[in-house]
């Protein structure tokens, strides 16, 4: 294990975020190397040496409450977790519905019809499918990424 990796594991140990595998690797490194143990002690001492700033003004809470009194009362709507999922499902259903309602093309020359049929057989060439895949990816990313829940203020 190089010093960079060792430092990463020590930082994750300090923050309580080591996986079991990382824990084993770190324990092995610490057992094998006095230098690694010294490095860990140094990191701990650094954290302990940082001075704590003074707290806010004693009347901070009262001043916050006073500022809030002059604003409209907030509406706390703690949305249940299923609501965004329901919205996503509704959007998907709508999209699929619109997609399936395709106008039947009017009479077309035989060669052109054959080309369209061939293209329709090959789903990878269907632009609607490409759009659909893109929308699915976007929705999956939105669902997976918790930061979408945070509104920029």
């Amino acid at each position: 294990m190089n010093p960079h990796e060792l430092e990463q594991l020590l930082l994750l140990e300090q923050s309580g975020e080591l996986t079991a595998q990382q824990r084993r690797a770190l324990d092995a490194a610490l057992a094998a190397s006095p230098e690694a143990r010294r490095f860990r002690d140094q990191l701990r001492a650094l954290a302990g040496a940082v001075p704590e700033p003074a707290g806010p003004a004693p009347d901070a809470a009262a001043r916050i409450a006073a500022r809030l009194r002059h604003k409209p009362k907030p509406v706390f709507v703690f949305q249940p977790a299923w609501k965004p999922a329901l919205a996503v499902a509704a959007a998907l259903a709508l999209f699929v519905g619109v997609r399936s309602f395709r106008p039947v093309p009017a009479a077309a020359p035989a060669a052109e019809t054959a080309a369209v049929a061939a293209a329709a057989d090959d789903e990878w060439t269907d632009p609607l499918d490409a759009d659909f895949t893109e929308l699915e990816s976007l929705l999956a990313a939105m669902t997976a990424d918790a930061s979408f829940e945070i509104t920029e203020l």
């Binding site: 806010p56 901070a60 001043r63 916050i64 500022r67 809030l68 604003k71 907030p74 509406v75 706390f76 709507v77 703690f78 949305q79 829940e149 509104t151 203020l153």
Partner: peptide, 15 residues
């Protein structure tokens, strides 16, 4: 103070 005021004001967006 501003942090708390904004947090309370926008609490409906907090999930």
């Amino acid at each position: 103070q501003e942090t708390w005021v904004r947090a309370i004001e926008h609490m409906n967006m907090f999930r």
